[in-house]
Structure formats: C-alpha cells, structure tokens
C-alpha cells in the first residue's frame, strides 16, 4: 500500500475562516415599517452580532488518506466540512478539492417521501452530477447494499428511519467517489448496518479513496484514521496521530465548561469501552486523563460509575 504521506494533495484548506451573523435583525418588512428606529439601530449594530464558526484553518489531506476531525459540539467541525463540500463559501481563505467528491452530510436529505425509493436514488444521483443512465446501472448494487430489494418501488414515506439511512449511505458509497466527506452520519442506524458501513469505508480506503470524516465516534476515529485533527472554538488546535489527538480531545473535554462537558459525555458514553481500554492499555495517557479529571470531580464520578457498571456487566457475562 502506498503511504498516504507521499501522495498528491487532494484536499487543501488555506487560512479558511467562516463568519455567520448571529441574528438578522430588521429582516421582516413589518418591523422595518412599524419600528424604523429600531430597524435602523439593528442595522447599525449588524457588524457586531457575528460568530466566527471557523477561524483560520489550514490543513492538507493527501490522496488515499483517512483524515478525521474531532471536537466538541459547536467547535466548527461540521461547518468546516460544509465549507469543504462547497455548500458554504469561506469568508476568508480558500478551499480546494481534486477529483470526484461525494458528500454524506445527514443521510437521507434530499429524499422526497412521496416518491419511490428507486426514483429517489435516480434523483439523488442527478443532484450529485450523474446521468440517469449511470444511476440506472448503479441501482442494483445500491439496493442490494441497502437491503431494500422488496421495498425499492414503495414510496419512501413508508420507510423506517433505518431504511432511510441505509439507502442514503448506499447511494453515497456507490458513487465511486475519489474524495468522500462524511459527517457524523453513522451514529444512526442499527449496529449491524453501522458495521457494514465501516467495512465499506475501509474498502474504499483500501481502494485509495480519500476520506475526511467528522465524528464523535472516537473508537472509529482511532480505528480508521491515518491522521486526526482537533477543532476547538473554530480553530484547528491539533493535527497528528489519531491516538494522540483523541487523547488530547478527551483531556480538553474534561477541562472545558460544564455545557460542553455534558455534550462530550454523551459522545463518550457511546465509546465508553474505548475509553476504558485506553485507560488500561496506555498508562501515560491514563495519567494525563486522570490529571484532567482530577480537576473535575463530578465528571470523574460519572465516568467511574459507568466504568463500575461496565465491570458489573462484564462479571455477569462471565
């Protein structure tokens, strides 16, 4: 296998920043007409009410590399992926991607509930830039992967949410992308299908597809990534080996505000086992983590409780 570090750069972000206005005051005609003074004042203030969701992010991903982005909720990682996907333009900086890009942002978006799965697959393909003929050729494999053979001609409003997710992933996965952008989509769906998705992603990775993934599933990040990056308040604060970055992320999580911590705890609960395994296997990391936790007794307590529960479950299984 060629080492990705020597490949050509296919995803590049240079000094990317994205600003969002926090609110758009005075937008309604009614307000403008009835309260002109207020509207004018809001218009004068407009520049100050803003949020830099992504700040000065620079990184490169080489062909065949699996690059993960982790970070707390609201750290800007999903915005960054939207910028890479071209769904939003950077306020400053440039984004460049080479080759055929397939994006998986929120599975099942763009499906119309009133028409059949088959028509939705074709329409999705057309939206992604494929021709009808290409999509008709890909259809059997997509349907097969999603396991929806007997349902494909039913209107999608009759599908379960799991079926939506499966069809959405199957479409993106079989688009033969050269660059695949994945945003936190595999958290949904049953464990068996999730496993199938990860298997497929691993296969794409072996075939040399470049993957950029945003995820809270730290176990998957460590398992698949060649490199990972940590986002914090819009900045990319660390890039490096997934294990190191995930460790740093957990450490920072424990240190940050209660709100963010809460959000992270939820993310961690999903990968509780991974955290516990890390604690057992990597003494250095465990020491760092413990030091971070020491400063937050409440968080520590919760984790210990969960670990205790896990051990009890293990004991029962034995």
């Amino acid at each position: 296998m060629p080492t990705p570090s020597e490949g050509e750069v296919v995803v590049a972000a240079r000094g990317v920043s994205r600003r969002y206005p926090l609110a758009v005051p005075g937008q309604a005609l009614k307000t403008t007409l009835l309260h002109p003074g207020q509207a004018l004042a809001a218009w004068r203030r407009r520049g100050r009410r803003e949020l830099w969701a992504v700040r000065d992010v620079t990184f490169e991903v080489r062909r065949g590399e699996f690059f993960s982005i982790v970070g707390a909720n609201g750290s800007g990682k999903s915005t960054l992926l939207r910028l890479l996907a071209g769904l939003s333009k950077p306020t400053r900086g440039t984004v460049e991607l080479q080759g055929r890009v397939s994006t998986l942002l929120e599975l099942g978006s763009g499906f119309h509930p009133q028409v059949s799965g088959r028509e939705n697959v074709i329409m999705n393909g057309l939206l992604m830039g494929r021709t009808k003929r290409e999509m008709e050729a890909l259809l059997p494999r997509i349907v097969e992967f999603a396991g929806l053979r007997e349902f494909i001609d039913q209107p999608m409003r009759t599908y379960s949410s799991g079926m939506y997710v499966r069809l959405g992933f199957a479409i993106a996965a079989f688009m033969e992308p050269e660059v695949l952008l994945v945003d936190e989509v595999l958290a949904v769906g049953d464990a068996k299908f999730q496993e199938k998705c990860y298997d497929h992603i691993a296969r794409l990775q072996r075939e040399g597809v470049t993957i950029v993934m945003v995820s809270h599933d730290l176990g998957a990040v460590e398992r698949f990534s060649d490199r990972a990056a940590l986002m914090e308040r819009g900045r990319m604060v660390a890039v490096g080996p997934p294990r190191k970055v995930v460790g740093l992320h957990l450490e920072r999580l424990a240190e940050t505000s209660p709100e963010i911590r809460q959000a992270i705890e939820e993310g961690m609960a999903a990968d509780e086992e991974g955290v516990r395994r890390r604690l057992a296997e990597d003494p250095e990391w465990a020491a760092e983590f413990a030091a971070a936790l020491e400063r937050h007794p409440g968080f520590h307590e919760k984790l210990r409780q969960e670990a205790g529960k896990g051990r009890a479950d293990d004991a029962r299984a034995d």
């Binding site: 333009k89 028409v115 028509e119 074709i122 057309l126 939206l127 830039g129």
Partner: peptide, 28 residues
Amino acid sequence: AMARPAGGRSMRNAVELVLALTARDLKL
C-alpha cells in the same frame, strides 16, 4: 474563495435534472 469540486458537470446532467424535477413535480 472558491470551493468548486473539480470534474464539473455535464450539460446533459443539468438537463436531465431539470426534466426529472419537472416530471416529479407534475406527477406529485
């Protein structure tokens, strides 16, 4: 700033897309 993925679309795709959307709207 540019964020246009390389490998642009064919005119054929745009035409097919408009036709498919139109057909779907009328059908619905």
